[in-house]
Design a protein around this nucleic acid. Structure first.
Lengths: 341, 341
DNA sequence: TTGTACGCGTTATCAA
DNA sequence: TTGATAACGCGTACAA
């Protein structure tokens, strides 16, 4: 009942070997006779023995926990991405420790707490930790991977979507479809991803417009939420300069817009307005929206993030890496694929 | 650079006290002079000292990690619920270690791995672990809280939505609205929640029907997904016994149904068919669906689950608890609130 | 209130 | 291949 957990010493006695031999038996890289190993396993099984990770961590100075720092999980993309990270971390034999830093004035303090866990690494996907928090981790020997946070860091590895490229893809699609009056929508509060996407969108147009035929303006909505998209629709659709193409830096803002549009204008009118979202969240393919979007390959990015971490653990002193993963246009019904030659 | 992390011993030397005094300084319950504590804190700050959780866990025989076992995170409700659990666990000064057991043939083995972490507890919200896995945890002194998994356990604490009550609420709502030809839809693969909801729905009707005026049948769709709802619409809407009220055991199945219905029948026809979902996921309030639903108060359930765990840690030997948290009807446009006197 | 001494369960080192 | 022994960094009796 209240008997304490079996230790390697208990197993050793039952198996008639030394405690060190038990330890070695559970290390695949240790050379040990198959006979004793089996004897040890049998004894361990009988006692319900499990390695004590705390003790192991003390020696190795490294737990196999990976900190996943996130925020704003009400954003569907972030949520979907977190899940992929969780699965990916698990697949590498590591364990995800999740940390939500939404509504935290004291992010830095909170993050410092993670140092206590001798983490194998930290993957930061959201939140706005100060520059030096990353350095704090590095100083304590904990590798940091930044995902969609910034373009440059002296110490942390970086994995990003090619956000500018994503914006450019949307712009290109509109041009191919002959749209001439464009709008790009992002949340007022600047996030790295959204700002870069909008920038990529506008830059592409600027460098591909030879005359004044195409106009593009940036519109800011309140937040990066469905509701914000819903609210901004009126402003966009009733302007004297009604656009024929709208690029949203996040899918669910686009969904809000589409729902509002159904009430503001006729389906026929709506058909002439192309809409492109960004991320390709699950919702985008629902029939209610069927949203053409620039897909952020989240599985690939999650894999890359974890792989980057493993690499860093293997080569702790190599130079910080940086990769930008390309986006991909998914045509659905809000902007039909143009007939190509 | 490669200097090792500061330990309590280092802090002790710098502060001119013993190592145990440092240890005590970081324990709020320890009585210690404020002067020395401040001196210790100052020294700790200077050295960037952080408690080593591994060492702490060894002594206390308990980490402050809580295992969150889940599966099928593509289901929006599960995903939303996981996030609330994460936040709730964090708010209690504990850390969530998430484990996804989707597509795992070896759930039991995987779960056994958790024992290595000296977890403070495990909250199981999904997956179909065998009965004895719970017992394995208990045997190792790790409390288990089951959420929406079953109605009975000898060893684990249980927190459930009142699933039968949720079904009954939906049935009652249809009756109040004068609906007479009802259908309840759940996924073919029986999950505890869905089965109980359907059961509650049908039982309520059975015990409140005094004549043959009301008919109710159960329809099974392939899985618990949006697509399944989309696919099942045809079968429901083209039956010779077309219903005037449909209860879906999960919101997003209802959303799939609604999207399909828009293409199968006119908006006018659809108006005469009441639709109720269950869970109240974020999607349900989007204008594209505006789904009347039986809300599963997920924040409350998450709070209850964590609180139950804390209670168990406080009183390890008390009898297993069981609570059913009531659901609540949220009227939206797919079934209008009847005018009451 | 503070210090001394010990043990938690594992891995790593070294010798056999 | 195996065994003895020494850390790892903390919490906690016990003594002062």
């Amino acid at each position: 009942m209240t008997k304490r957990n079996a230790t390697s010493a208990d197993v050793a006695i039952l198996a008639g070997v030394s405690q060190s031999t038990v330890s070695r038996s559970f290390d695949p890289d240790s050379r040990i006779s198959e006979a004793t190993r089996q004897r040890v396993f049998a004894a361990a099984e009988k006692l319900g023995y499990q390695i004590n990770k705390a003790a192991q961590t003390m020696i190795k100075k490294r737990s196999d926990l990976v900190g996943l720092v996130t925020a704003g999980l009400e954003d569907p993309f972030r949520s979907e991405f977190l899940h992929k990270l969780i699965v990916e971390v698990q697949n590498c034999g590591l364990r995800p420790m999740v940390m939500d830093v939404s509504n935290q004035q004291t992010i830095d303090e909170e993050l410092h707490g993670l140092i206590q866990y001798q983490l194998s690494g930290v993957i930061i996907t959201s939140g706005t930790p100060s520059e030096n928090i990353g350095k704090a981790f590095i100083r304590h020997g904990i590798p940091v991977v930044l995902v969609n946070r910034t373009e440059h860091s002296d110490e942390a590895d970086i994995v990003n979507l090619d956000n500018e490229g994503a914006g450019a893809i949307a712009a290109e699609a509109f041009m191919k479809s002959g749209k001439t009056n464009l709008v790009v929508v992002r949340a007022k509060k600047p996030s790295f991803s959204s700002v870069m996407r909008a920038k990529g969108f506008l830059n592409y147009l600027a460098s591909h417009i030879n005359n004044d035929e195409i106009q593009a303006t940036e519109v800011l909505c309140e937040t990066g939420s469905y509701d914000s998209g819903y609210q901004i629709a009126d402003k966009i659709l009733t302007s004297q300069h009604k656009p024929d193409g709208v690029f949203f830096c996040m899918d669910h803002i686009a969904c809000g817009f589409l729902d509002a549009a159904k009430q503001l204008i006729t389906a026929k009118e709506m058909q002439s307005i192309g809409v492109i979202g960004c991320d390709d969240i699950a919702l985008a393919r629902f029939k209610a929206y069927d949203l053409t979007t620039v897909k952020q390959p989240s599985t690939e990015i999650a894999k890359a993030a974890v792989q980057t971490l493993l690499n860093r653990l293997k080569y702790p002193t190599s130079a910080p890496s940086k990769q930008a993963i390309p986006a991909e246009l998914i045509y659905r019904s809000t902007l039909a694929k143009p007939i190509t030659d």
